[in-house]
Design a protein around this nucleic acid. Sequence first.
DNA 1: TATAAAGGTGAATCCGCAC
DNA 2: AGTGCGGATTCACCTTTAT
Lengths: 275, 275
Amino acid sequence: MEAAYQAKGFRLFKGDALDIMRAMPAESFDMVFADPPYFLSNGGFSVHSGKRVSVHKGGWDKSRGVADDMDFHRAWIEEARRLLKPNGTIWISGTYHSIYQCGYALQASGFHMLNDIAWFKPNAAPNLSCRVFTASHETLLWARKDKKARHYFDYATMKNGDWPGDKMKNPGTQMRSVWAVNTPKQSEKTHGKHPTQKPLELLRRIILASTPPSASILDPFAGSSTTGIAAAMVGDRHFTGIEKNKKYIDLSIKRHRDLNKSPMPTWSAPLSTTV
Amino acid sequence: MEAAYQAKGFRLFKGDALDIMRAMPAESFDMVFADPPYFLSNGGFSVHSGKRVSVHKGGWDKSRGVADDMDFHRAWIEEARRLLKPNGTIWISGTYHSIYQCGYALQASGFHMLNDIAWFKPNAAPNLSCRVFTASHETLLWARKDKKARHYFDYATMKNGDWPGDKMKNPGTQMRSVWAVNTPKQSEKTHGKHPTQKPLELLRRIILASTPPSASILDPFAGSSTTGIAAAMVGDRHFTGIEKNKKYIDLSIKRHRDLNKSPMPTWSAPLSTTV
DNA sequence: TATAAAGGTGAATCCGCAC
DNA sequence: AGTGCGGATTCACCTTTAT
């Protein structure tokens, strides 16, 4: 299996997430960050793959769409579990369209939930229908491989670090399960934009919180590789991304090359290494 | 079936939620609010009921506890669905221990998710282990019976109403999916306290948002009946509560009688009826 | 200042099955 | 039968922050 792009601490594979994950050796990663696609079953996205085999044996879903989506989420989550080191952790982001399926699949496949995070987006778009509340947050799940495992958590950096723009974070107190982080500004979109692109600040926080230096990180639905860019900016992390769409592979490569043009890392080292 | 307590717009049934729900006629309620128990399967709480029959046919849960809990949630959620009027809605509250199972069961049984709300608790207890983020929010799911239904939503009151203490709510703008509401203060606990007692302010918001005047509301896990007390304070709502524990039935009755001692309702009528 | 908080960790203990 | 191991449970202790 050949990488579509390979650089120091940063490699990309082009293709189906499940196929490529299955070709990787077990227990390869310290952390997985995944922002899985949703609306698999109805018109919105056509991410159906011929390789998707139905493993859903419950049959009590009244909605075929929900059951199909659940098959998909169970499959990639179990594969991610195989690829994680014993003390590794997984992050999954999503809205209510997919996060309840992912959360249940996570717990059902043996993961032990550590936190669910409400990522509050102060600059989210208003609701136009005026029939529901304005969706202004997204959920992040954080879990370890099983109840007994010992995960990494940089408590000191989370508590004492600098978290620009987060009005919810009281300096010098514990970081809570609600984070206020704006969605990417125009300055982060100069290369073009993936539809669900995450802010670098969000990934910075996730990487610093849950991975030690030299950790290896997998993002099976990499998009424009915000996870990898954030890892490179934090420094001393090994990123592996999988992305099916050539356009986003190219965008990822461009973002990484542009990053390396500027010799100085954008972010300082984790606070905990100096305290 | 006889109510344990009956007053104007407020009645309580004592017993198992599933049993009592099954004895009620279909399409009886405009709204269901439920804060279901969790940790059903392990030692923490002994809420096991001999009546619980395993209907789980999937078998792909690696954890028996997760599968057992899922059986329970599926059963009461399907019963709640039967009891809802066609345009009725359901609210479910929970932490990550149960909310992903509830959310998936909701979607799998045909409900259409309207919102998930992150209820941020600014005064939540700190985390003692220092191994994870401080859990300071709870999730509320809001869904209607199916995709085609037409639900009630008091947009104007949510947008323009007075929401004391919520630093996230910008006056005169749409209400968002993140709410800041403190957990009950001592003044609300004078009668004693249910372990998961919700603040009246939270239920006030839920009732005003999702029920018109004269609506009938069911809370199958009523606890100390915060839902019913809030409904009485909002006014012109019919509350039905189910609670298994005599201690909380008694507490509920006491709260309701004390409320009626004060002749003036605590809250003014919904803003939208006067605007 | 004392208190409360549906807490998390990890070592010790207990239990049940395999050899 | 006795030993050994893995899995499940128990419990003392860790340490924080809003009120």
